[in-house]
């Protein structure tokens, strides 16, 4: 069987044998994205090193709660980003992620966005902690992700309140 439901073989390969999963202790940058309401949460850890005076992603690991696509996109983005300079890593977009997996079902395309967001958040985290200059583009992206997180939090609060109501009975 080379096709599992809507997924390509490559997606399944990454799901079955994900690359670079786990946690990095004391990471230089950590990107936490996704939300439990949609069923995907991704943590991306990076260690930054130097190569010919340029900052590169020396090590990268992920932890993901999510569907097959979420796990596969997490795995592939670690492959794509590892060893790249921060500038180059930030240029990885969702289409590149999806293409590297030989495609994703349309309904799962948001998972590739999630992976891209996680990486950019990890880089943002590193740059802001080190008080390094942050490009306007990255700053805006970060603000957008933060805004979405707030919205979800509000929605989530509603669920928690409902849960408490049901269990009080």
């Amino acid at each position: 069987m080379d096709k599992f439901g809507p997924y390509t073989k490559k997606v399944i390969d990454h799901f079955k044998n994900p690359h670079n999963y786990g946690r990095i202790k004391n990471p230089d940058g950590l990107g936490k994205v996704g939300n439990p309401v949609c069923g995907d949460v991704m943590y991306l850890y990076i260690k930054v090193g130097k190569n010919k005076k340029k900052e590169i992603i020396k090590d990268i690991k992920f932890e993901t709660f999510g569907c097959v696509a979420a796990i596969s996109t997490s795995s592939i983005i670690t492959d794509l980003a590892k060893g790249k300079t921060l500038d180059k890593a930030m240029k990885i977009n969702k289409n590149k992620v999806a293409r590297s997996l030989d495609g994703l079902p349309p309904i799962k395309m948001h998972c590739s966005m999630l992976a891209v967001d996680a990486l950019s958040e990890a880089i943002y985290d590193y740059l802001s902690k080190k008080k390094k200059p942050i490009s306007k583009e990255l700053e805006e992206k970060h603000k957008k992700i933060e805004k979405e997180k707030k919205m979800i939090k509000k929605k989530y609060k509603k669920w928690v309140e409902m849960e408490e109501k049901i269990y009080k009975r």
Partner: peptide, 20 residues
């Protein structure tokens, strides 16, 4: 085919991540 958590599981008081 939908991505939302099950309405039934949410109705019995599970949090979205639990329903997922």
């Amino acid at each position: 085919p939908k991505l939302e958590a099950s309405r039934v599981l949410l109705a019995i008081g599970l949090r979205p991540e639990e329903a997922h």
